[in-house]
Design a protein around this nucleic acid. Structure first.
Lengths: 190, 190
DNA sequence: TGTACATCAGTGAACGCGCGTTCACTGATGTAC
DNA sequence: TGTACATCAGTGAACGCGCGTTCACTGATGTAC
């Protein structure tokens, strides 16, 4: 084996990381394979030694992007007690609004992913379910599972929609007020 | 004037209508000018007699799509008293989930529009503000404007996010449960 | 009323370009002897 | 320890294709006389 397994794994990872940032920043269709490989300091022909197709990469990039966003959101919480409100507060922050390339992939790419190839859609559905389960655990456990799921579903919807809408108003200042309002309302029912 | 103003206006409108449906169904980048013109029973060369560019068309299509979605949602309410809850109920319905091509353009295209040309972004921001104002009027008017805006912001965020997430889980059945949960939670604070 | 004309919505071929993907190749590496 | 070899990650040119846009044109129309 001329090259170590580790080497190939690391290169592949570099491509995924470049893709995770580029896709969230500029959209799936707007970023080509050539640009991705350039960002990973490779030439575009080598792409197919690692992935069967661009769709393949997208499906694989999504979980990576979501995991990375999760870490960044945790960091944004900075020691706040780990509840639904603290999570929503980090999610609906100016930092998250201004940095889609490091943030939630559902907010950055949700509708596009939903229209993608079957394997992409499956990956998306899986990530949504995972996020819902994570939020379930943040609702006080004395409540019934059904009520917990209701609250986590509402919170996730509010967070994703709130972030997309805030970004949609972004050059203007009222996106800040909107973030505050969405967060206050998300927190009001908890 | 060899052709009536009315004729040109009607043709232009046909293009906008074709675009409004096609974009929401398949995405901005995925639908080309040629396909749009084919859908409007025209040849693609004629496009530039009506619009300066594809971006131009996108910016103009957005308000049309939103107005059409508004009418469809009203129809879905079917006489229910016209409050925030009835609106959310129509918005988070199975019908809306299954017909993005006739539904809210923000839920179908929000993130892509947000990354678009300046004139597209402006059009998006304007539509978001308009929707917020419409929702403001549905909150009982005895409450203060600030509280009303908080409730409408939260409701809009919940509706948009809820619909995107439900569509993201769509081939599976649990998207129905998710819609119910998001709606119940959106209604809980009202 | 009939005809010549000017207008311009719509046609369809063509433009350059970047896309996703393929492929013959190169050259750094670990292994065999 | 030194050398010949097989492997395969990465290179870079090339593929066909569809994109947004341009342009010379056609032909249906309302107007002028």
């Amino acid at each position: 084996v001329p090259w170590s397994k580790e080497h190939k794994r690391a290169t592949r990872q570099r491509i995924v990381e470049a893709a995770a940032a580029a896709f969230r920043e500029r959209g799936l269709s707007e970023v080509g394979v050539a640009e991705l490989m350039r960002r990973a300091d490779l030439t575009h022909g080598g792409f197919y030694a690692h992935f069967a197709s661009k769709d393949d990469l997208v499906a694989e990039t999504l979980p990576h992007a979501m995991a990375q966003a999760g870490k960044n959101l945790e960091r944004l919480q900075r020691g706040a007690p780990n509840g639904l409100l603290a999570t929503a507060c980090a999610y609906l922050s100016l930092e998250h609004m201004e940095h889609p390339e490091q943030g939630c992939a559902i907010a950055a790419l949700g509708p596009e992913l939903g229209r993608g190839a079957p394997r992409v859609r499956q990956s998306l559905a899986k990530e949504i379910r995972k996020r819902l389960e994570q939020l379930d655990d943040l609702v006080p456990s004395k409540t019934s599972p059904a009520v917990r799921r209701q609250q986590s579903a509402g919170a996730l919807a509010c967070m994703v929609g709130g972030l997309i809408l805030a970004r949609g108003m972004k050059p203007s200042d009222d996106c800040r007020a909107f973030l505050r309002n969405a967060l206050a309302e998300a927190g009001a029912s908890k």
